[in-house]
């Protein structure tokens, strides 16, 4: 029983970076921008966050640095894809390649170093509850923050004027522009928000989840987060569901290894990637269903 509880806790921790990045990318995509640079933004934020956390000794400072790095990196994307109307696919890809290169280069000084940050915070009282205490109330604050963020994003998108504007820009930038909405300004904003979220996710990985810096340590989570938005058909709470689902897939490998099942670790490590492919294929199977839910202008260039 206690084992199951810690498995749930581990799943929530593993799902958190996917949820953070996924929810940021969701806002991006609802405004019509597809940023394939997620992996690069997470990598650069993981390196920057780790460096700041290592030198200041503060996890919070590291997380904030990660978010800032994510925003700065997202501005490169905005400048090109929104300002200069470059192809969004190619620009995002360039950002990922650049982020991978730059983080490997800049992070070299931190390879092999560790940070001593506390990963679990027991909530007084609640954490004493049998089973649920271990499963839900002895986690890092970022886990709860990610859920809170999901709620806020869901509320903003569905219930506020800002959300309506973002959705209008994503469905038809031409109409939104004609009405007088600053389409490009709004998109730069949503991309920056996506950058901040991906940055938080990256810094969470290197400061709290792993916690160390290794080249390429994001290991495709940025891409999985991109797949999550399709899986979630662009609905915030479904991103959370998907993120924890993938978190649990990651945990299966550790659970199996703990049980002494004789499967090579490399084969088990394939699971999240294979799961992404399978889920993506199942969700995308019906093109009409995807078209109905996808922001209509997603990935298309817009020049006023």
């Amino acid at each position: 029983m206690e084992q199951l509880a810690s498995l749930i806790a581990a799943t929530l921790s593993a799902g958190t970076p996917l949820l953070l990045a996924g929810i940021g990318l969701l806002i991006n995509e609802r405004s019509g921008i597809l940023n394939l640079g997620a992996e690069g933004m997470m990598l650069i934020a993981a390196a920057a966050g780790f460096a700041v956390g290592f030198h200041t000794g503060s996890a919070t400072a590291g997380l904030i640095a990660g978010a800032v790095a994510g925003v700065l990196f997202s501005l490169i994307f905005s400048g090109l894809a929104i300002g200069l109307v470059t192809n969004q696919y190619a620009t995002g890809l360039a950002l990922t390649l650049f982020g991978a290169g730059l983080s490997a280069f800049a992070g070299l000084a931190y390879v092999g170093k560790t940070v001593p940050f506390q990963t679990n915070f027991a909530i007084p009282g609640l954490s004493e509850i049998p089973f649920f205490g271990t499963a839900l109330f002895k986690l890092h604050p970022m886990v709860y923050l990610a859920l809170l963020l999901t709620g806020v994003v869901a509320w903003v998108l569905a219930r506020t004027r800002l959300g309506l504007t973002i959705r209008a820009v994503g469905e038809s930038p031409e109409s939104a522009h004609a009405i007088g909405f600053p389409v490009r300004g709004i998109r730069v904003g949503t991309v920056a928000f996506g950058g901040a979220c991906c940055g938080l996710a990256g810094a969470y990985l290197s400061l709290i989840y792993t916690p160390l810096w290794v080249e390429g340590m994001v290991a495709g989570r940025g891409w999985i987060a991109l797949a999550l938005t399709t899986f979630a058909t662009w609905k915030p709470w479904r991103v959370a569901l998907g993120a924890y689902l993938f978190g649990s897939v990651t945990m299966i490998q550790f659970a199996l290894q703990a049980e002494g099942v004789e499967i090579a670790s490399q084969l088990l490590s394939m699971l999240p990637y294979i799961a992404t492919i399978v889920v993506l294929a199942l969700v995308s199977r019906n093109p009409a269903f995807i078209r109905l839910n996808m922001p209509a202008s997603l990935g298309k260039p817009f020049h006023p």
Binding site: G40, I76, L80, A90, T91, L93, A94, L95, L97, F98, G99, A100, G101, L102, A104, F105
Partner: peptide, 10 residues
């Protein structure tokens, strides 16, 4: 190398 590759594409 990776830094230059990324810069070149951007």
């Amino acid at each position: 190398t990776g830094v230059f590759q990324g810069m070149l594409l951007l």
